[in-house]
Design a protein around this nucleic acid. Structure first.
Lengths: 344, 344
DNA sequence: CGTGATCATGACATTGGTGTCGTTCCAACG
DNA sequence: CGTTGGAACGACACCAATGTCATGATCACG
């Protein structure tokens, strides 16, 4: 592995000049630059990231830590956390234009994962944390050491930068659609894991919306874990229920897809049977039959904003913390009982 | 930001001792260890990754560079490269058990992306490259500087470690199923981008399989770019064709889904209409209606092997290069014209 | 009481780049 | 011809760890 010294040596210049050439400083003579570039090319020299990070006090790496749910160790359930994938691409596409790279880590909530994030925090200039990867206290402590932006986490946070999504608005529109347009009166809900603030909020808003409509009941409320399998399990429970709800709203799309598929397998169709809705609007939701009515999250926007905010905070650590709420869009397709649209 | 020096100072020991405590050396007195740990806790000290990287000559970071296709800049086509997402999770899950992290970068093929990979190569201990992100010559040059493992790239490579997938075997089984079990005689193919070795191989094998069966014709061969939109476009072309093929095999699942959806939208159903098959077996393929018959790639295995191989090579750079081919599995579902299975 | 072994510890060199500061050199100008 | 200004460049300190080597302390044993 060649170093600046070697390059400087061969080019007959000092290491400082090599550095200037690499970074395009105009304080170097064209001839000298030429010579240095030739040596760099010849040696295939690439500056060492660690050494650069040390002397510049910035590593040009940001981290993204996210929860991975429902992937069993044996790998039988292939369900990957699709929500996160969308986010990763969004963040990466922002960084692509810069000289900053993205360091990724997933894991199940818990102490080992928190340790991993801590040790990772030494390798990055800043951290994006998605969902509730660690208790708020620890998160704030982390944020005192390095810049942190929370994505889709709790909104009641004044010490931290947060970029979140307006679960409430989307869910309210969806509930109104189910109650007012379809006239459903008995509505079920398939909740997400209790450790997800988003999951909790979605249920709460749905509950309130129903309470505001006399004659409507929320029943049953089932608990899932965001996985497709837990959706399928819920569907089996629902099928046995008397009276069964007319519709079941799910806290995310993967569970909704699980419900949908299981209902079909059991011979119950959506038309005349049970309506299903989701939340997130992942890729598969457009594709499943019937296409899933759901509340869309602005993934790209979420990732973009979070990435930009983090970079801004890395630039200026004294920036006041703020939380940004992005709008959601209720996307009516067919699984709620609406006729399938002719054109997309 | 606190450093070893500060910790050492406060604990009244030398930096060497702090280092020993951090790395769990047993050459340190329990009392001393206790004292040092207390200071570390109090200061929230985390060792700086750059400094560690510099002195250990290893950064404990590996990179993954992959092509991103079909994502337009305006973000209208939300289709993300699902194949890659699966791979990312597989690789990440290997690294999770180690103290190594994953640095990610996507990009469209081209000179800027190659530059980015070069500069990234200074930040990592080794690189996983997926598909044809750069010309073979450059890739080999890169591999001479740092450990590189190619994933799903060209197989005719003796200088480089390669982990690839047996496209041929899966495709042959699929072709045999279409020709022998279903009795199709006029078969179309929707090819992938010409710069993808996998895409080329899939077409070639399909072509040969058909040539071996007298009475069968390969017509038409359309060209797509692995995106769902290009599948939809192909479907419109196919619909106008006389005679139309009985089945169209697609070089990946996303295009197959595009074909499927477009056919349905145009009123042509699969039963009695045109059969469709894919390649990859991504999540959405199980979920789409009718469920897609496809050739499954062992994503997890692919990621696992590649990650392990790279780590092995980082350990010992003199390891002989080898290429590993992983088996594919032809998964018959319903889109080929088979009856939908009662149980999954 | 001396010797050797073992354990705990610290001093210090090393790692590759960056950026500051000072120096050299040349041209232009009075 | 001396002075000045600025461009081009080099020496050097610094960054935060690691790991080697030397050393002091403690103890057992002869």
């Amino acid at each position: 592995m060649s170093t600046v010294y070697e390059v400087a040596d061969r080019a007959g210049v000092s290491t400082a000049t090599v550095s200037r050439v690499i970074h395009g400083s105009n304080l170097v003579h064209p001839d000298t630059r030429e010579r240095v570039l030739a040596v760099i090319e010849e040696l295939g020299y690439v500056p060492d990231g660690s050494a650069q990070g040390l002397s510049r006090r910035r590593k040009d790496i940001i981290g993204l830590a996210a929860l991975e749910r429902g992937v069993t160790e044996v790998g039988i359930e292939k369900t990957s956390p699709l929500f996160m994938d969308e986010l990763v691409h969004a963040v990466e596409s922002v960084l692509r234009g810069t000289d900053c790279s993205l360091l990724l880590t997933f894991g199940p909530a818990g102490e080992p994962f928190q340790r991993r994030i801590r040790s990772l925090s030494g390798k990055v200039d800043g951290l994006l944390v998605a969902e509730e990867v660690m208790p708020p206290g620890q998160l704030r402590a982390l944020a005192r050491r390095i810049p942190v932006v929370a994505i889709a986490g709790r909104r009641d946070e004044t010490e931290l930068d947060v970029v979140a999504v307006d679960n409430a608005a989307g869910m309210r529109v969806l509930a109104a659609h189910l109650i007012e347009d379809h006239g459903y009166r008995r509505l079920g809900f398939l909740a997400g894991p209790a450790d997800s603030p988003d999951a909790r909020e979605r249920l709460e808003v749905f509950r309130r919306a129903i309470a505001e409509h006399p004659g409507c009941v929320l029943d049953p409320v089932l608990e899932g874990d965001f996985s497709e399998a837990s959706g399928a399990a819920a569907a089996r429970t629902l099928l046995a229920l008397r009276p069964a709800p007319e519709v079941v709203a799910c806290a995310n799309d993967q569970m909704a897809i699980g419900v949908l598929l299981q209902l079909q397998e059991s011979g119950a169709s959506v038309s005349g049977g049970m309506a299903v809705t989701g939340f997130d609007d992942i890729y598969a939701s457009r594709v499943v039959a019937p296409p899933l009515t759901t509340v869309g999250q602005p993934f790209r926007e979420l990732g973009h904003r979070a990435a930009h905010r983090l970079r801004a905070r890395i630039e200026d650590r004294e920036l006041p913390a703020m939380t940004e709420i992005l709008p959601t869009t209720c996307t009516i397709r067919a699984s709620c009982g609406c006729p399938a649209p002719g054109a997309r």
